[in-house]
C-alpha cells in the first residue's frame, strides 16, 4: 500500500515539475505505433452471443500542428480472435479505420508554466469491421456466417491539448459522427455456399443515418514526450463504442493501448 502511495505521489510531483517548463511547439510529425486492443462485440445478425478478445492494434499517424489549425491523418488496423461463453464458437475479427481531422483553435490559456488549448472541428472517418463466425466441429473449424459493419462518417470533433513542458504534452480528442453512411449485410442470412448477393460480398456503401442513429464515440488520450530533437515518444489510449440497429442490433467497444514514435519532419 505504501509503495503504491509512493508511486502516486512521485507521479503527481513529476507532472507538477513538467508544468513548470511548459512551452508550445508546432510542426509536422509522422508516427508509427504498436499496441493491443481489447474488443467486445455483439452482432445480432450473426450471433446473439457477446464475443470478446485481445489482439493487435498498430496505427500510423501524421500531424500538422499549427498555431491556429491542426490537421491529423491517421490509419489504424486491429485484429482479434474473439471468444464467447461457449468454447466451440470463436470469431476472427478485422477492423480498420482511416480518418482525416481538422481542428481549429477555439481558446487557449497560456502561463509561464503551461498552456491549455481547446480546439474543435470536424473529421471524415471510414471505419470497417469484418467478423467471420466459426464453430468447431470434431475435425474442422467451419464458418457459420460472416458479417460486417462499414461506416463512413462526417464527425464533430474536439481536442483538448495540455502542454506540460517544452518536451511533454497530453492530447485528448473526441469524435462523434453526425452523418454516417453504413454498410451492413441484409437481414436474411446467406449461409449458402454460392449465394453471392449477401454475406460473402461486402458492399462499400449502405444507408445514410443522422445523429443519434449509429451512435458512436471515439476518444483518444495521447501523452507525448520529445526524446530527441527529431524523435517524439507517444503513449496512447483509445476508447471506441458504436451501436447500430440495422438489420439487427450491433454494438461493439474497444480499449486500445499503443506505444509509438513520431519523427519530427519540421518544427
Amino acid at each position: 500500500m505504501n509503495s503504491l502511495r509512493s508511486v502516486y505521489i512521485s507521479t503527481i510531483m513529476t507532472l507538477c515539475c513538467h508544468f513548470l517548463h511548459a512551452q508550445t511547439y508546432h510542426g509536422d510529425f509522422i508516427g508509427l505505433h504498436f499496441g493491443a486492443s481489447n474488443f467486445h462485440i455483439m452482432d445480432g445478425h450473426s450471433s446473439p452471443l457477446i464475443f470478446q478478445g485481445t489482439g493487435i492494434a498498430p496505427s500510423i499517424q501524421y500531424m500538422h500542428i499549427g498555431s491556429e489549425i491542426n490537421h491529423i491523418i491517421d490509419g489504424s488496423f486491429y485484429y482479434d480472435n474473439l471468444f464467447t461463453s461457449a468454447d466451440n464458437f470463436n470469431t476472427e475479427n478485422f477492423r480498420g479505420r482511416f480518418r482525416y481531422s481538422l481542428f481549429c483553435s477555439a481558446s487557449h490559456n497560456e502561463t509561464a508554466a503551461r498552456r491549455f488549448e481547446f480546439s474543435f472541428g470536424g473529421s471524415v472517418t471510414s471505419f470497417y469491421c469484418k467478423s467471420d463466425y466459426y464453430f468447431d466441429l470434431p475435425t474442422i473449424r467451419a464458418r457459420s456466417i460472416s458479417s460486417w459493419y462499414w461506416s463512413h462518417s462526417l464527425d464533430f470533433s474536439t481536442m483538448f491539448n495540455l502542454k506540460l513542458s517544452d518536451r511533454d504534452c497530453i492530447d485528448f480528442r473526441v469524435y462523434i459522427p453526425l452523418v454516417s453512411n453504413i454498410s451492413r449485410p441484409e437481414f436474411s442470412s446467406s449461409g449458402d455456399y454460392d449465394y453471392v448477393e449477401n454475406d460473402w460480398v461486402i458492399k462499400t456503401f449502405g444507408k445514410t443515418e443522422f445523429f443519434p442513429a449509429n451512435f458512436s464515440v471515439n476518444a483518444h488520450m495521447d501523452y507525448r514526450h520529445q526524446l530527441f530533437r527529431r524523435i517524439i515518444l507517444q503513449f496512447g489510449y483509445e476508447f471506441y463504442f458504436v451501436t447500430y440497429d440495422q438489420p439487427d442490433q450491433i454494438s461493439m467497444y474497444m480499449n486500445n493501448f499503443r506505444l509509438g514514435m513520431f519523427i519530427v519532419l519540421n518544427q
Partner: peptide, 20 residues
C-alpha cells in the same frame, strides 16, 4: 428451403435453419 444458416446457442449447440 434455400440458404441454410448456422445459429449459435449459448450452450454451444448449433441450430441450422433455412432463411429463404
Amino acid at each position: 428451403g434455400e440458404v441454410t444458416h448456422v445459429a449459435q446457442l449459448p450452450n454451444g449447440w448449433t441450430l441450422n435453419y433455412p432463411c429463404t
